[in-house]
Nucleic acid binder design. Structure first.
Lengths: 204, 204, 204, 204
DNA sequence: GATGAATGAGCCTTCATTCAT
DNA sequence: GATGAATGAAGGCTCATTCAT
């Protein structure tokens, strides 16, 4: 008999990342994914129920991997909140460092899945946002973060900002080197844009 | 009552905002747009070359309107940089305050147009990013902003963060009231998350 | 504007009768139906939801027409039962006299629809079988038909026999002229095959 | 337990009868047949050239078995014609008594094979119809059957009627018990529906 | 022989766009 | 200009068949 080659699913998934990333979910043709995977069209359907489920699989996998890092952060009770925030940001950026296509997919096609609000990845996404909130709230309680920051909004700020820069990096890696991006995000989110006048927080 | 034919283009555009916003660019059907506009399918093509050009038109219009505010900011040589940044953020949020559908469109479908990199809106978008850079650079020169902030990256941070929160607001206005969002964005971007230890900037 | 030509639905339906009749439901391609109807492929879907619904429409129409005749028979309280049976048989045969393709469809593809047991036609079919039963039962009560005949089975006998001969006629009209078929069916079902032992043959 | 490989062909054939009968020829999937046969998909093709040939095989086998009984009838020169007709009807019904799936196959999918008019089974089918004709003609000659019956049409009447009732029985065995069906068919075809005017009904 | 993963031709259906009225 | 019926290219998916193991 013909053994499942084992890497075929991976080749399809990888091709899907490239094609979805390049052409967008709707611009991506199954036949093209199969072609780039070096596989017959029908073979795609041996491993995935349909086009939508490929995207779901990719996002579930992606968020599952992000989740591993986040879970680690969540468990370290003694880690200081600032480090936790840094680890979360790093966790996201590290995930894409080697794979710009994946970044494009992540940045552009999540909408596709959010629209119906189902799918395995949804849980991880919600978990992530909650984790962010918890970390910020914890930091506030410990007197490290400003008490007037809204944890949920802050988390979304970081996520949105990171997303945008990931996008820019994936489109023009030279102009947006990931290391610089990483440093800037942290610097701005921690210290803000203003030069503090004195020791009092200049907040409204 | 038979409305004046003169407003047909507007009715189509408005319907398109709703339908694109609700169903996404690819999920949107021309016939549905026509229907919501109270117009025959074919009439859409009297005012727009094709589906893509409707989206281009909407984004061009949107960015043109944003641009008006930005241009004002750019011209005020004497305005302090911090206020300029605030005006830019406000400019974006104000644009969508009355129109969640437009926010969804703005947030979800820009990708569609970025993909091919052409279109009138592109110029406005690039202009906007350059304006942001200039304002930040100006602030640094004037000693108001931290000198180690990368102006281009900072601009993208703000844009990405705003985008994300606009999305959340449009999806759940109660949980993300625009006023709170507006205040938080400014607070965080200006002052950061950390409570300054003393007067020295705590940057790496 | 372009007015619905009006006969397009009919042309598609007629083409469908031919193609379904000739190639069978599964062998029939929508594109071929459209072609024979002198219509674009997509136009088929202006008039019918999908392939299956074309078949359903045709059977519903067919049985509705048969039903008209049957309903007449059912209402005539004073008609003698034998004439009623004759009218029913005639009703079926008349329906197909002008249209062998329709006969092939009727004879071969009803299975397709019986399988799921739904559809408008189903009701007419059941009605028809019940009408047959009622007529036979009535005939028995009136002492015209043999009392030991099972009305339901008899009805099915007639239907099955008629179906088979319709099939043969549609395949080879010369070998199975409809008039002969009609006469034979009645003769056999009324008088049977045997020569009555003691009486003269009561045949027409 | 691993069954002897020798019965694989039979297991496939039996599974095919069930699956074809249940799902129809086109609804039947080779993989499903293999599964029900407890055999790998590819193995089906070790025993049968293709899907169509499975059906052909089944019908050939079926008709070959029917033919055995018919051949016996044909050879008995001294058997009275009426008995011959009865034996033919019994032959058909007996064949399916134990196997409703086979009945469904027989009743629904013969069309599939008639369409192209080839196949081994075709000869047996034609033979059967000719036998019927011969028997009826013989009966007429012997003065037992009505001289005005068309032998070919009569044969088709019997075949069609039997087919229909086999179908009903296979769908609802309780409502159409095979014994009742058998009796009714004979009674009606021999004696007809009408009560002979001057004689007593010559029914069993 | 046996297996079941792999193949790819083929078809139903959608929908942006056109065009006769 | 306005209409909406008509068009037909294109693509997701199925499944009979093949073939490497």
């Amino acid at each position: 008999m013909r053994r499942k080659s084992g890497d075929k699913e991976k080749r399809i998934a990888d091709a899907a990342i490239r094609v979805f990333g390049r052409d967008g979910y709707h611009g991506a043709k199954i036949t093209r994914i199969a072609e780039e995977a070096g596989v017959a069209t029908g073979s795609v359907y041996l491993y995935f129920r349909n086009k939508q489920s490929i995207l779901q699989y990719l996002f579930a996998k992606l968020w599952k991997e992000l989740h591993v890092g986040f879970a680690y952060v969540a468990q370290q009770a003694d880690l200081d909140p600032r480090t936790k925030v840094e680890l979360i940001i790093d966790g996201i950026l590290d995930q894409f460092e080697k794979n710009p296509s994946l970044a494009l997919l992540f940045v552009n096609e999540q909408t596709q899945l959010l629209r119906d609000g189902t799918g395995e990845f949804m849980q991880y996404y919600v978990d992530f946002l909650q984790l962010g909130e918890r970390v910020v709230r914890d930091g506030i309680r410990k007197g490290v973060f400003r008490p007037d920051v809204d944890p949920r909004i802050f988390t979304n700020l970081v996520f949105g900002a990171t997303r945008q820069l990931l996008h820019q990096w994936a489109r023009a890696p030279r102009q947006f080197p990931l290391d610089t991006v990483r440093r800037e995000i942290k610097a701005v989110f921690f210290g803000g844009l203003l030069i503090p006048l004195s020791s009092t927080a200049p907040r409204a």
